[in-house]
């Protein structure tokens, strides 16, 4: 009970800190830190997506950058067509409305996750890792060599798309929007974890044979979780494209997939606020050490190795104790 309370306190601190830092930056007129906090919020959102598959379902997907990139490309392509006025296909036009773009981004990443998940979940363990990595690489190469939308050079979004009632070109308003979406996704994660669905998913992770014996079909539940997971990561990709106003195949590299896993591990696997803590640590590390040395990834590697070998459970595990079941 004490540990549970400590985790809630920590979650509240993280939620408040993520809001307070850019607020202070707004007051001090330091727009750089507002953008940085928005980046943390969006990366954390992508992490929340992966946390459903990896944390709750135990599915180690090394290919979530694919959904991140697909979401990004949906935003880029729809905005591109809205800007140029050319129809997309079948007379459909592009869009510069974030809500429309998000819906399409989520639908298409969910579809991709459905196909990739249905194929990859025929296997498990080490095979699953290699296959998700390979399929993400396929989509990466496709984006790289498909000439219509910039190929290797990527695709710029000239004007940030619109959200009713907000001026998204202002850094602060973009942050508030990203923060709100992150909080909604965290609420969804908590809801899923508390629901029968989450219980079934975690039961399958811990003991598939026993779960099957009490009448839970692993495949359907895992696939559903995988699709929801890809969908949320896809939404994060669309928002990241808005933030940077640029999409390129770089969003779907295997390094990006690795980074998403790192975010979850640094924060704590399966913990509600794990991705928030992890994204915060990663971005802070990048800014602090990136400013000191161009070889900052060397030190990131050392820290990561230390966490895996000696501090399993991540930051939240370290501060709030390990989860009882897990």
């Amino acid at each position: 009970m004490v540990e549970k309370r400590r985790e809630w306190t920590l979650n509240a601190v993280l939620a408040i800190a993520l809001f307070a830092v850019p607020l202070a930056a707004l007051w001090l007129d330091e727009p750089f830190y507002i953008t940085l906090a928005t980046r943390v919020a969006i990366l954390a959102l992508a992490g929340v997506g992966l946390n459903i598959a990896l944390g709750l379902g135990g599915m180690v997907s090394f290919g979530h950058a694919a959904y991140f990139g697909i979401g990004g490309y949906v935003a880029g392509i729809l905005a591109h067509h809205a800007f140029s006025g050319q129809p997309l296909f079948l007379g459909l036009s592009g869009s510069n409305q974030m809500l429309v773009i998000w819906a399409v981004a989520m639908a298409i990443s969910a579809l991709a996750a459905l196909v990739i998940g249905a194929l990859s979940l025929r296997t498990s363990g080490i095979f699953f890792i290699m296959i998700t990595l390979a399929f993400a690489q396929m989509i990466f190469y496709f984006a790289l060599s498909w000439p219509a939308y910039g190929g290797e050079d990527g695709l710029p979004i000239f004007l940030r798309n619109q959200f009713p009632g907000l001026n998204t070109m202002r850094g602060w308003e973009m942050f508030v929007l990203s923060y709100a979406v992150l909080m909604l996704a965290l609420a969804l994660f908590a809801m899923l974890r508390g629901a029968r669905f989450g219980a079934a998913l975690m039961a399958i992770r811990q003991n598939p044979a026993r779960a099957a014996a009490v009448g839970i079909s692993p495949f359907g539940i895992k696939l559903t979780a995988f699709v929801i997971s890809g969908m949320i990561t896809g939404l994060a990709g669309a928002m990241m494209a808005e933030l940077t106003r640029f999409v390129s195949p770089a969003m779907m590299t295997w390094q990006m997939s690795g980074e998403l896993i790192v975010i979850i591990i640094l924060g704590g696997v399966g913990r509600l606020f794990g991705p928030v803590a992890g994204a915060g640590i990663l971005v802070a590390f990048e800014v602090l050490f990136g400013g000191l040395t161009e070889h900052w990834q060397f030190f990131l590697g050392l820290v990561l190795l230390g966490v895996v070998l000696f501090a399993r459970g991540g930051l939240i595990g370290l501060l709030a104790g390990r989860e009882r079941h897990g």
């Binding site: 180690v60 896993i261 990834q297």
Partner: peptide, 14 residues
Amino acid sequence: HLDQVLATFALILI
């Protein structure tokens, strides 16, 4: 496998 993936990913960076 998650630990193995992560530790060897860290090795790639290093």
